[in-house]
Design a protein around this nucleic acid. Structure first.
Lengths: 121, 121
DNA sequence: TTATTATATGAGCATATACTCAGATAATAG
DNA sequence: CTATTATCTGAGTATATGCTCATATAATAA
């Protein structure tokens, strides 16, 4: 057991090897950030409901607003975020924009997370 | 096209059928909330780094603090949250608590999310 | 052209949350 | 027993974020 109190980081380190190994295996900052943003996007009730709905059918902004019971503005803000993260895409038909999921990963993510919360405790 | 302006919900509905279908398919509130919290847990850099590190080896609080460069208190707060969501478990060995992932779902979630962000844009 | 409609955007506000600090527990060591 | 050590917890704070409102675009309709 090695104590490096008040050295540089003010942090005690009990297992140097484990800390070193963790640092070695760590994802780079960019990947970490992108992963974070992706999970964070799914970690909000409104956005998760949007994604879950779009997984089944394409929908426009005002339908989603009616479905969620929030303003179209709020939906639009969230869709912009989801678009930025390439989680949804849209197509125009006249004045209406139909949104859909960008790829199949989301369905898989939700499916696995559902498995997790369904586990016996 | 049907407009129900200033009716009850103040929301225009363009496609009644789609909204109805979305409502029919929607997850119940409890499942939605649990899913949200799970994703939200992974949607923070500190927690994601913790999970990624624990996916490979068990670690104690002060090692994680040294690895992340934050206080042990901060790590402990985050671990409590992860424990509550049954994402990590721990075992005691003397005075030290070793944390590890609770199950394999997390690895899968991260793997799929990695695939998503790695897609050509 | 002008009017309408669906969506997007910026500002402002209220809540949520991630951190640090100080102090409390819980287990072991002497 | 007391001292030490690893972890936990509550409070306070600063930042992040999700919403609404008002307004701006962009495409179509007349």
């Amino acid at each position: 057991m090695k104590l490096e109190k008040k050295d540089q980081c003010e942090c005690r380190i009990i297992h140097d090897d484990k800390v070193e190994e963790a640092r070695h295996r760590a994802l780079d900052d960019e990947a970490t950030d992108e992963l974070c943003q992706t999970f964070k996007a799914l970690g909000d009730a409104s956005r998760l409901k949007i994604m879950w709905a779009l997984e089944h059918q394409e929908m426009c902004v005002c339908d989603l607003a009616a479905f969620l019971g929030i303003t179209e503005s709020a939906v639009s803000h969230q869709l912009r975020l989801l678009r930025t993260l390439r989680l949804v895409k849209n197509r125009r038909e006249g004045t209406i924009l139909y949104y859909r999921l960008a790829d199949d990963h989301v369905s898989e993510l939700v499916r696995i997370a559902l498995e997790h919360i369904s586990e016996p405790r």
